[in-house]
Design a binder for these strands. Structure first.
Lengths: 347, 347
DNA sequence: TCCTTAATTGTTAGCGCTAACAAACGACCT
DNA sequence: AGGTCGTTTGTTAGCGCTAACAATTAAGGA
């Protein structure tokens, strides 16, 4: 095997001499390898002089600790697995960025597993993949209801933080307050004097979609308004377009709260083609505030979620679970409304 | 230390008995641990009977190989690091998905490092992070020119596949043929009879932006048309909007080839507001074909890139470098044009 | 029959690190 | 001076695995 390696190109990348070990540093600094280990790991009982000598040797040799060896003995990989189903979407992608930032700052590695389709099998596969890798914890970025069960039955030996859920049982949760977001959107429309406010929701088996619909319903009910104008889309611009075409004919509402910005884009096009003016005839509010929302026609009033912050909070919670011995809990990030030209008082 | 662990919540997640080792499987199957290792690793010289007995024991105990231990002795982590700067963008996010899919299929783990800002320092940091983790290879998803140097001077001991570049020196490359994409866009406009075709490019220090501009220029020159209508944007819808406003006043071109879909969105809005009709007055072509492009107003003619395929090819190349001893080389994915309503013959 | 060769299995060492324990050293007290 | 303590350093073992080699068995040929 080693012989074979010498012939393949991987070896071409390897410099001939091997990387320095603790032993090499120890020799150079004139101490035992254990003392070097103590310096590396910031143990308290090392004299200042020794510490400095060791640090110099580390720098001179360019020593870097071997993660595999450390993991083997500590049973910690310092790796967090992020299990995600919609990584190409704006929200999850940015949440991942937040997780990565916080993780790297804390000296953790981030490993990913993408789910092509969301099913108990695919989730089990991904979780097993992570356990094979020996991750210390898992962040589940799967916005469907029912994900929790698939993970729970696995009886994983590591902490799990579920994004977009309040966390149940042994799992911790990190979420943006979707209901609040929906309430902000509806409150804005009510303030402008709208009485008939419809909602185009995402698929109701998505936690966020259900929460937003519920927030919309609650806000309307509290204001004494009807909550009968609900249509379910599939998050895509295409579904927003299709639903928008129907709404343009029916004209049952003076304002529409749309479950995300993409569907809102489709609605705007349908309205535009049908001659329904936004916001003069109908006001439209989106959700997410993706970077393009300000350049729709007209610019979209929408609810901003700070996904990166959500990701950072996730990781903070994971670190607390891992290192401070905290128990399961929940963290909530508040959304805020961004008012643009797509909303105005009804005619 | 062990004592402290018993009190923190991490242990609460641990079942009391430790995970099975090779030795446990060996005992159960009545063979030596080495024989089990051979079965696990598909070594040829194991009798069928023994193999089956071992496999049964593995299944019964739910044995899973300890990655840290294996890495320690083989000096292979079976982990690929993906170094990316714009992970929240449609293209890079989908490329990552492709890499992840191919990697997991091949039994590799995918680790990520996101760059908040692109500089030699941040790239060096990320690369060092990966080396600390002991990755077997690095996929660089950094679309700026000059990235290569920052990586090259590090003299990494592992293969590197650079996405969006043809690969230079020791690095391999995987790219979508950007020039071809630009040529397709321009050819489509020329076919429709346009003579004055402008280009709104991305920042010229991005490799893709420069390639697209070059493709645009070549296609025009070959057709004997002027290539003097070039404006540089920053990829954002906002910059497209600003530039679109100017173009709407100047009216120097009958068609605009825009460097990406987001800027095209901004251009469409600027034109819409200024009363410039698309495609009647000016045709617009984008680049990327992100999912929303079909729902712009009007639906956008654009150039589709298959980012997932690009990611898969990256990983295929990485595997070839790692396992088959292949040398550095390049793989190219062809884009194709998607014609929608934003283009038409000039008036 | 015995030797040669191949196929299969077992034994040993060690990858680089940390935890646990042991030893050495000095400071301080009585 | 001699004991007690705390601080600093060294020694040893072993985490779970694979590579290299050794041992065993079976098969085939002279």
């Amino acid at each position: 095997m080693r012989c074979r390696l010498e012939h393949n190109s991987y070896m071409a990348y390897s410099s001939e001499r091997r990387l320095p070990r603790l032993e090499d540093v120890a020799e150079r600094a004139g101490v035992s390898h254990q003392t070097v280990s103590r310096v590396i790991n910031n143990h308290p009982n090392v004299s200042k002089a020794t510490r400095e000598r060791v640090e110099a040797a580390v720098a001179e040799l360019g020593y870097r600790r071997n993660t595999a060896a450390r993991s083997l003995v500590t049973r910690r990989s310092h790796t967090i697995g992020v299990l995600a189903s919609e990584l190409s979407q704006y929200g999850p992608a940015n949440t991942l960025l937040g997780v990565e930032q916080a993780a790297r700052n804390a000296g953790y590695f981030v490993s990913i597993a993408a789910l092509r389709e969301v099913s108990a099998d695919s989730i089990t596969d991904a979780a097993r993949h992570f356990m094979d890798q020996g991750v210390d914890g898992i962040v589940a970025l799967v916005p469907h209801a029912g994900t929790l069960q698939a993970l729970e039955v696995l009886n994983l030996d590591v902490p799990v933080v579920v994004v977009g859920s309040s966390g149940e049982g042994r799992f911790s949760g990190a979420m943006v307050d979707q209901k609040l977001g929906a309430r902000l959107a509806v409150a804005h429309l009510i303030e402008q004097g709208h009485k008939r406010i419809g909602h185009i929701s995402g698929p109701q088996d998505w936690i966020d979609a259900a929460e937003r619909a519920e927030g919309w319903r609650e806000a309307l009910t509290e204001a004494g308004l009807d909550d009968d104008l609900l249509v379910e889309g599939d998050w895509s611009a295409g579904s927003g377009y299709g639903i928008g075409q129907k709404l343009a004919v029916e004209r049952s509402a003076t304002a529409v709260f749309v479950g995300n910005d993409q569907m809102a884009l489709g609605v705007l096009r349908a309205f535009g083609e049908a001659g329904v003016r936004v916001p003069e005839d109908v006001s439209v509010v989106g959700f997410d505030d993706q970077p393009e929302a300000g350049y729709f026609m007209p610019p979209l009033t929408t609810v901003r979620q700070d996904f990166e912050e959500l990701g950072r909070r996730c990781m903070d919670m994971m670190l607390a679970l891992l290192e401070d011995g905290a128990g399961a809990r929940t963290t909530v990030v508040d959304p805020r409304i961004v008012v643009r030209a797509s909303t105005a008082p009804p005619a």
